[in-house]
Design a protein around this nucleic acid. Structure first.
Lengths: 163, 163
DNA sequence: CGCAGATAGTTCGGACCCGAACGATCTCAA
DNA sequence: TTGAGATCGTTCGGGTCCGAACTATCTGCG
């Protein structure tokens, strides 16, 4: 099966190829696996849960944030979802066109825009989120109950260090 | 500072809002923080290391894979970089246009395309990668040496479970 | 030998993604 | 009170990003 490298092969090739350079290989292994894991998990969610509702990952996250907070301002959705306000603007237009959210111009402060889920959007999340959570459970199924809080804590510290 | 939620606030709001539903909150915390961490780390790298070379994240990862493996076939680059072959095709066209890589049609098998870094591409990676590694070290600076291999291992298991 | 099926990379359409520039709105000090 | 500066969301241009359809090539069974 040419062209197919296992994770181990890749890491050993990296070690060989970069031998002698003054690098932090431990840090490299953590971040490389961080991106791989996030990517794999995201692809898995998109294919198993989101695709059948024709939702992209980002659109789902945006819906999720607005759902959790009942209603949310644009800039906090962008921050929670991890996208720029420029991106969010486009995604909101898409979601509004499909009838899942509504934009409301702030009354006190005319610069602000508040986002709320429509009835249709709420129905969608109520149906979708339990399935999404099942997929979450699936991707962490080989992490023991004891390790899961440790993992979450480590990831929180990485998030903080990168900000 | 309205509209700014801390990580703790978000997680407690989630717990309140979803109370009573049959959900795995531990799994949720792991994946939520996984995506947050990957996103934050990626944004940090893009801003501190990649932006000044005018490279996107994906373009850098593609260069990195071809660099590590000396030369690589398209489908393995796509797999390592975590993008579809359609995306890779576009990224390669961009990188080729900027003179960092060369496409070579396979001689034995006319369907295959091999990617190699040009001299300019190699120079770029030789300069950029140590800086990139410094940024990697930065984002894991609050994870102890003892924890780092544990973290890498947990992330590897998540990757496998999601595939 | 010949062609049905598998496989590789590209193209296409539509959606995301960002920084920069922009117009609208708010704030607060002179 | 009035503007200079801050802040908000949108727009714009260029670069990903993907699934599906497509072309080119290879493989192997008959």
């Amino acid at each position: 099966m040419p062209g197919q490298h296992t994770l181990d092969e890749t890491e050993s090739q990296v070690a060989t190829r970069l031998a002698g350079m003054d690098l932090d290989f431990e840090a490299m292994a953590v971040t490389a696996n961080l991106f791989r894991a996030a990517n794999a998990a995201r692809n898995h969610m998109e294919r198993t849960v989101l695709a059948k509702s024709n939702l992209t990952w980002t659109a789902f996250v945006v819906l999720w944030v607005a759902w959790i907070w009942e209603s949310a301002e644009t800039r906090e959705i962008a921050s929670e979802a991890g996208v720029s306000k420029a991106t969010l603007s486009g995604v909101l237009t898409t979601l509004e066109g499909r009838g899942f959210v509504e934009r409301k111009r702030g009354e006190k402060d005319g610069r602000l825009v508040t986002v709320e889920l429509t009835a249709s959007g709420k129905r969608l999340m109520k149906k979708l989120f339990p399935e999404f959570n099942k997929a979450e459970r699936h991707v962490v199924r080989d992490i023991s109950s004891a390790e899961q809080p440790v993992a979450a804590d480590i990831l929180r510290r990485i998030t903080q260090a990168a900000n």
